[in-house]
Nucleic acid binder design. Structure first.
Length: 288
DNA sequence: CATTTCACCTGGTGGC
DNA sequence: TGCCACCAGGTGAAAT
């Protein structure tokens, strides 16, 4: 479900609603898959920490956590999350079907709920993931260093650096776009959509694109990702943001999941092929 | 090393 | 209604 725009939308929503709140305790399901850090360590680490801020890096949601202020003189003033330095992080990767939801405690607990964090404000932060491809990780920053996604951010990378990512590579440009160690955050929808807007066939060798094609691709990615964030992401089947609201960018898709339909630009029938094991959609006329 | 394939999961859809 | 094949926003390990 979630690529850069969806993850960005969720992270912003959680940040807006939970910044400054405090985690009372954490409950986790018994399925082992989602836990990169063992359940017990995660529950212990999260308990009574303050949520300082929440942001996205690549497809990861990072919650910056502060240690809880203990009794006594330390709490003379109300909490100022921005002034406190994080000493732990909770990292959420949503996989294909993960959701991160801010709810009231009386909200029915749906199937596949794998984490529930109860909060001082009385609300809950829930992680729900039917396919269990998502991952939850707790990092104690006094023992390990700050989480960082390996690839470059497509919204801030410059022309030269972008071109250098693909130089000399034999794999298809679409496969390269999906490689998170090159670019962080691009998934199947936005790879297909940006290649359409750049007029490039998904099977073209990454290292054989011209400089102008590469620059068109970088600009197309920026345009598509920014517009998708503006529209709250793509809700193809079940993606919702932290408030449970659907996005609208699926209405703007030109090729993704439009097999057999006419190209919005030239009317040619959109084709679907298999590339890097993923359904890949393109217009045989607009993309060369 | 770079690249490709496959397993990991559940659920929805459409054909028969 | 049931059964089956196929498809789905991702990734990391294993094979090539």
């Amino acid at each position: 479900m979630p690529e850069l725009p969806e993850v960005e939308t969720i992270a912003r929503g959680v940040d807006e609603r939970l910044r400054g709140d405090q985690i009372l305790e954490a409950w986790f399901s018994s399925y082992p898959q989602p836990f990169k850090t063992p359940r017990s360590a995660q529950a212990k680490g999260l308990a009574s920490r303050t949520i300082l801020s929440v942001h996205r890096t690549g497809k990861h949601i990072v919650c910056e956590l502060g240690s809880s202020q203990q009794s006594g003189a330390a709490q003379a003033r109300p909490q100022q999350p921005d002034a406190q330095w994080p000493d732990a992080q909770w990292i959420v990767h949503l996989g294909m079907t993960g959701r991160l939801l801010v709810t009231t405690p009386d909200e029915p607990v749906v199937t596949h709920t794998h984490a529930r964090l109860s909060l001082l404000s009385g609300r809950e932060l829930r992680f729900v993931d039917a396919r269990r491809f998502g991952r939850l990780e707790f990092r104690d920053l006094s023992r390990s260093h700050t989480f960082d996604a390996p690839g470059s951010e497509p919204l801030s990378i410059g022309r030269e650096e972008f071109a250098a990512l693909f130089r000399g590579r034999k794999l298809a440009i679409k496969a390269a776009l999906l490689n998170q160690t090159l670019l962080a955050g691009v998934g199947n929808i936005y790879a297909d959509e940006s290649l359409f807007h750049a007029g490039i066939r998904p099977r073209r060798g990454a290292g054989r694109l011209t400089r102008s094609e590469l620059e068109r691709l970088r600009q197309a990615l920026r345009k598509v990702l920014k517009q998708a964030i503006r529209l709250g992401g793509s809700s193809v089947s079940d993606y919702v943001d932290a408030n449970g609201a659907r996005g609208f960018f699926q209405l703007e898709h030109c090729v993704y999941l439009r097999t057999g339909e006419p190209c919005r630009s030239c009317g040619t029938t959109i084709r679907r092929i298999l590339l890097a094991g993923r359904g890949t959609h393109f217009c045989p006329n607009c993309q060369r």
